[in-house]
Amino acid sequence: MNLSSESKQPAKQPDGQRRRLLAGVAGAVSLGSVGGGFSLIELALAKSEDETISSLNRWGLLIDTAKCASGCDACVKGCSTEHNLDGFDRPETDAQWIRKLEVTDRQTGHVSSLPMLCQHCEDPPCVDVCPTGASFRREDGIVLVDKHICIGCRYCVMACPYKARSFVHESLHNQKSYSPRGKGTVESCTLCVHRIDDDRTPACVESCNRDGNGAMVFGDLNDADSQIAQTMRDTPSRQIREDLGLNTGVRYQNL
């Protein structure tokens, strides 16, 4: 699927911020811009805690490498703090859900700085190779590890073209209640699924906006009215290793 076909899908469900906005004004807004077949009242309702997720949404990130500054690691810090990725001061084996990369164009010498994290592929290689089914893709596009059935074989670590996955080598004691992590399992960016289920934006995006350069946009790629879908429709963006045809949920601009 290419970008244009993705962003042309009809409005289905707004992202969190929009949902809240709509919730307040739902009664007063006309149905004109939403299209037939959907009630604005239904659209306006945020996901309640007992509601299941839906494939009507596809969550994603758009990262503007022109704004992402070399040397800034606000997103990495935000992620570490959110998920208590303390580490043991052993960089080679410590968990790393998001990292900063500098990529150089060999022809021109132009250097771009960008955050690399799980790209939340539509066809994830990590899910293909997982022997137990622990690696899976949620209906709303978030790729996760069910650590209850992960046996720590690390096939997915090998399969991921983005080196996005980490293995926990040592016993941990200070996990967050919303982010269980443990020895012997593989883990990676969850797109802050606990926040998304609560209608909030991922910690990296929040940190980038607050402490960094506002280079990251989070939203629903399936919602034509969302900021992320509109930006992706109006300006060029690309997938890293687009030759693999994975249809990533994380896209980059000015790369």
């Binding site: 810090k77 935000g78 570490s80 703090t81 959110e82 208590n84 303390d86 650590k147 016993s171 941990l172 004691h173 200070n174 996990q175 967050k176 209640s177 919303y178 269980p180 992590r181 443990g182 020895k183 399992t185 909030r200 910690a203 940190s207 607050r210 402490d211």
Partner: peptide
């Protein structure tokens, strides 16, 4: 509890979702 938290989050450090508290939370950690 090899993976799950053994106490409420405020038991470790007040972090994350509280705006402006990121620095102090990181320092505590």
């Amino acid at each position: 509890f090899e993976c799950h938290a053994t106490m409420p989050d405020e038991g470790h450090a007040k972090l994350g979702n509280i705006p402006g508290n990121m620095e102090s939370g990181a320092a505590t950690l």
